[in-house]
Design a protein around this nucleic acid. Structure first.
Length: 656
DNA sequence: CGGCAATGCGCC
DNA sequence: AAACGGCGCATTGCCG
């Protein structure tokens, strides 16, 4: 098979980072500087605008790093402006997807370095090319690319060689993942319809509501609201101690926490607070949300047809989950507005926001910016003639973990629809618990079931879920989970940990709980019950002191991963490996359901880890159909006995 | 001014 | 007996 490795260089006044590849390619100011490519092992060639279309080898596969970009340029510029033939998705391959799957850094430069391939990033060429998209400050005009074009081609050639080296080193996606990637491409090209007039109205409201409050904040503190550290210092200087400026901390400090029990816990009673501090914190709480920046993101990436594309990154996270980009549908704030203890009806809320009148919004829904933040999800809508149908797997990672651990009495409870959070709470409190009379106890039970499956300890549990309880209580919660409620789970941690450690130390494969660890090339792989593999790069045998006893030194291992765009060494431990497996199995259930949705006229527009959002024709918007699809699990999942439940809904706007 | 690291904050 | 999560983006603050 002939392989063409290619790379475009372009100029534009559109901000690629903010807009994403698809919107960028559609921008009228975007133009191609050059296209460079190699055919198999031959030397690089290049094409410049004005030259005839190159003769592409018949049936070639086109390989690019972040093929989304090359595809977008090809479809939005080469096809309509230069009359080139389209290349279908089935003829594209993405080295970035390959890096993602193998947990190699996704940036070309870092990937090449991590794999010790012989290529250096041409920083000068990169800067020169980027500079062609920026207004020249001396002339006030866009620079003329012509004089530097040979240098740009040289830079582009280097990138093509780097990409080819990467491709030769990593090869192709395995067949199953190839299908997932092709589905990913379809979803990213389909895009998400945004309600642009609503986005504008929200921005107007935020602007109007924010200005006087931001001014008042500055009057009181002399600071900018976003200078969190300095605001913290100021608060402290006024005699109030706050560990951070997080929404929850502020709510507690301002005495708004509904579940607080002041008699029980005098220590955390909100301190009497000077009026200016109270007012400043109230303002910060009302308008300090960073999430409203999503409105700017939405404007920047939405295309001429009202849809935003390229919002999901294939295999962005180690266990295979998608990650969000640009608008990032993965972290929309949840709706915190309450009307009679329920989320308010959506359409009246949208109507109120569309008035662009913050006073009216405030009168009906409380502080206007908070109302906007709570409504952000609703900017995602169904296209015309269509509806949204969405569903999420209920507590899927906890269910998978319990099933894997053979805790069949617990999975049977779940399958029967019992309230396992109350069941867990009964193990903790050793008395009958019900949802109505013991909401706090049930919440502790819920956090335990969802949080303690991956070796979280008492300290962390307290920090995350139970700040108001003493450490001793959290120790008892952890003990109850590990000893009484689901004792099989800790066995999974130790078994997976030991199997992986033995594999790395003895360089021979070891299996536990249906997860088969082996060494392949520079990776430790974990074959899951679904047949898919997880990849851990550059595993190193180490010896580690145990956290509970520094004289207790045991075999362990580390591997390399990317965090915050940095390559870091990660210490493996059983709980982490178990979490990876649970996340990965949940992802496999998700993709399985996504394929079925596509077949059943429920085109997928995005997913959020355990949630699928589809956009069928209005007449086919049947949440029960989606529920059936999501509950229809593959054989491997049936074999471990995981009880799967999905909560589904249909509507015109995205919600939670 | 741009690049980079650290931090905060939102979700699953 | 027994431990650490996974992400992306915005902002700040420091550096050259």
């Amino acid at each position: 098979m002939t392989t063409v490795v290619l790379d475009f260089e372009t100029v534009s006044q559109c901000d690629l980072k903010a807009a994403g590849s698809w919107r960028y390619a559609q921008d009228p100011s975007t133009a191609v500087l050059c296209l460079c490519w190699t055919v198999d092992d031959a030397a690089a060639e290049h094409w410049l605008p004005g030259q005839p279309e190159p003769k592409w080898p018949l049936g070639a596969t086109f390989v690019a790093h972040n093929a989304n970009f090359e595809k977008a340029i090809w479809r939005h510029i080469m096809v309509p402006e230069y009359g080139w033939a389209d290349i279908p998705n089935s003829k594209w391959h993405d080295t970035m997807a390959m890096c993602a799957m193998r947990t190699v850094p996704q940036s070309l430069d870092m990937a090449v370095k991590a794999l010790d391939l012989p290529a250096e990033k041409d920083n000068t060429g990169s800067k020169l090319t980027i500079g062609l998209s920026k207004i020249d400050k001396k002339t006030g005009m866009m620079p003329d690319p012509a004089p530097v074009l040979p240098r740009v081609v040289e830079y582009c050639n280097d990138d093509v060689y780097a990409q080819r080296g990467l491709h030769n080193r990593l090869g192709w996606l395995p067949p199953g993942e190839r299908d997932v990637w092709l589905l990913d491409q379809r979803i990213n090209e389909r895009g998400i319809r945004l309600d642009v007039p609503l986005v504008r109205a929200m921005q107007t409201i935020v602007e109007k509501a924010k200005t006087p409050l931001a001014h008042e904040f500055r009057q009181i503190t002399g600071l900018n609201m976003t200078q969190i550290a300095k605001v913290g210092d100021w608060v402290k200087s006024r005699g109030v101690y706050l560990p951070d400026m997080q929404a929850e901390t502020l709510a507690n400090a301002l005495g708004e926490s509904p579940d607080r029990d002041p008699i029980d816990d005098l220590e955390t009673e909100p301190e009497p607070m000077p009026d200016d501090v109270r007012r400043a914190l109230l303002i910060r709480q009302q308008i300090g949300s960073a999430a409203i920046k999503k409105l700017d993101s939405a404007q920047a990436c939405v295309m001429f047809d009202g849809r935003a594309r390229g919002l999901q990154q294939y295999h962005g996270a180690g266990p295979g989950r998608w990650t969000g980009r640009i608008l990032q549908p993965h972290n929309f704030p949840r709706n915190r507005l309450k009307e009679d203890d329920e989320a308010p009806a959506i359409e009246p809320l949208i109507h109120a926001l569309m008035t662009e009148d913050p006073d009216y919004v405030e009168m009906v829904y409380g502080p206007a910016v908070a109302a906007v933040v709570s409504s952000l999800r609703h900017i995602i809508v169904a296209g015309s003639g269509r509806a949204l149908v969405a569903g999420d797997f209920a507590g899927i990672e906890a269910r998978l973990t319990l099933a894997l651990a053979g805790e069949h009495s617990k999975t049977a409870l779940m399958a029967a629809g019992a309230d396992v959070y109350c069941d867990m709470a009964e193990s903790i409190y050793k008395r009958p618990i019900n949802k109505k009379n013991d909401p706090e106890e049930r919440q502790i039970g819920k956090n335990s079931v969802l949080g303690l499956g991956f070796q979280m300890g008492a300290r962390k549990f307290r920090l995350k879920y139970a700040k108001k309880h003493p450490l001793e209580f959290c120790e008892e919660v952890v003990r109850a989970y590990r000893q009484d409620w689901a004792p099989g789970v800790k066995d999974v941690w130790y078994a997976l940990g030991n199997a992986a450690i033995k594999t790395v130390w003895d360089k021979s494969p070891h299996e536990a709980y249906g997860v088969a660890y082996a060494l392949e090339d520079r990776w430790l792989t974990a074959r899951l019950p679904s047949g898919r593999k997880l990849w851990y790069m550059d595993p190193q045998p180490t010896r580690e002191a145990m956290p509970w006893d520094e004289t207790d030194i045991r075999r362990a291992f580390t591997y390399k991963a990317v965090k915050n765009k940095q390559r870091v060494t990660v210490k493996a431990f059983g709980g982490l490996l178990t979490e990876n497996v649970a996340q990965a199995m949940a992802r496999d259930l998700l993709t399985e359901a996504m394929f079925k949705c596509e077949k059943e006229n429920l085109p997928v527009v995005f997913t959020v880890h355990d949630e699928i959002v589809c956009e069928p024709f209005s007449g086919q918007a049947d949440p029960l159909m989606l529920r059936d699809i999501m509950r229809d699990i593959p054989q491997w999942a049936k074999a471990i006995g995981v009880p799967v439940e999905a909560e589904c809904w249909a509507g015109d706007r995205y919600r939670k």
